[in-house]
């Protein structure tokens, strides 16, 4: 038997043992279903506030904006033209305006009633010359937009806690020390943990994806294969991040703190529940260093805009980078 075959045999054994442990842990399994519901509830409370604006306008330039935008009931956000027109075609914004010299250029979505009302108001209130543009596209319901967020959030929790916390528990209980006294190598142990959690994460995501689509019939216009690839690479990126956190940590309490310190920023800044368009630049910069942001941007591009592999290549490349760094650090620093 070659050393590779021995290695595969040992990895397979640890992989199956970990899967068995997960499947028999009914309390933990149940919690994985309850927790997202609790998070939704918590966010609903935290973000409850004054009623939302009646209309949303996206401004491409921020100087000399039309007087209309100062009216109560109109929320204005800033963005570049390309993103703004994408949002308009999905009816995530009702009007796009751009001030060019002495004239105001604006775009409306031909299918949007809100856009038509805003166009009338703009004509009535704006003294400068107006230049009209039009896009079309069906409205994106909130559910269409938020489903990738929920799938991504579940993946994040499952990956980070399912690996990070479990490895620390194994260490604290002395189980890793017991494994160290066998021919099992660090690489074999870590690979088995990654593969086991990846299987769980992808299976759970697929079940949630198919199940919720049957009930909610949300928008999915892109390639299922590409979406699966995003889930695969994104899942791996977050699992290896969990491993890197757990590679030396000896206390479950400390691991709790570290995992929370990583999951909360992703939960708030990666665009799980709301778009970050219009948020300050520094917030968007932080979001770009979080793996969940790239998972969600790529998944939404595929699901809502039928993006191809080249359109999301940058996100995939960044996620693969996260995987390489996470796994490299884990193997290098791992302590039994």
């Amino acid at each position: 038997m070659t050393s590779i075959m021995r290695s595969v045999r040992r990895m397979k054994a640890v992989f199956f043992a970990r899967n068995l442990e997960y499947l028999r842990d009914r309390a933990s399994f149940g919690w994985n279903l309850v927790f997202p519901v609790l998070i939704v509830f918590a966010l609903a409370v935290v973000f409850s506030g004054p009623p939302r604006a009646l209309f949303t306008v996206t401004a491409v330039a921020s100087d000399s904006l039309p007087e209309l935008l100062e009216f109560p009931g109109i929320e204005t956000i800033s963005s570049d033209r390309s993103k703004a027109l994408d949002r308009l075609s999905r009816q995530q914004t009702d009007l796009v305006v751009e001030v060019v010299g002495d004239s105001v250029r604006y775009w409306v979505n031909g299918n949007s009633a809100s856009g038509a009302i805003l166009e009338l108001l703009l004509k009535y209130t704006e003294a400068r010359s107006l230049e009209r543009g039009e896009t079309d596209g069906e409205a994106i319901r909130y559910v269409d937009w938020v489903v990738p967020g929920i799938l991504g959030m579940n993946m994040m929790y499952s990956a980070l806690w399912g690996v990070g916390y479990v490895v620390v528990r194994y260490r604290q209980s002395g189980y890793l020390r017991r494994l160290r006294a066998t021919p099992l190598t660090k690489f074999e142990f870590l690979s088995a943990q990654v593969l086991s959690r990846l299987l769980v994460t992808l299976t759970a995501s697929t079940i949630v994806f198919v199940g919720t689509n049957l009930i909610l019939d949300y928008k999915m216009v892109g390639s299922l294969g590409l979406l699966f690839l995003i889930a695969l690479v994104g899942g791996l990126a977050m699992i290896t991040l969990g491993l890197a956190i757990a590679c030396r940590t000896e206390s479950k309490e400390f691991a709790d703190g570290l995992l929370n310190a990583i999951t909360f920023p992703m939960l708030l800044l990666s665009g799980v529940w709301f778009s970050l368009d219009g948020s300050p630049n520094w917030v968007q910069m932080i979001a770009q260093v979080l793996p969940l942001t790239h998972v969600l941007e790529a998944a939404r591009a595929v699901m809502l805009d039928d993006a191809g592999v080249t359109d999301i290549a940058i996100h995939l490349a960044i996620l693969i980078g996260f995987c390489a760094v996470g796994m490299g650090l884990s193997i290098k620093l791992f302590k039994w």
């Binding site: 068995l20 442990e21 194994y170 002395g174 020390r177 017991r178 006294a181």
Partner: peptide, 15 residues
């Protein structure tokens, strides 16, 4: 070549 019974060893839960 060696077998070790540690003083305190946990095993995987649920196994």
């Amino acid at each position: 070549r060696v077998g070790i019974q540690f003083q305190a060893t946990a095993l995987q839960d649920f196994l």
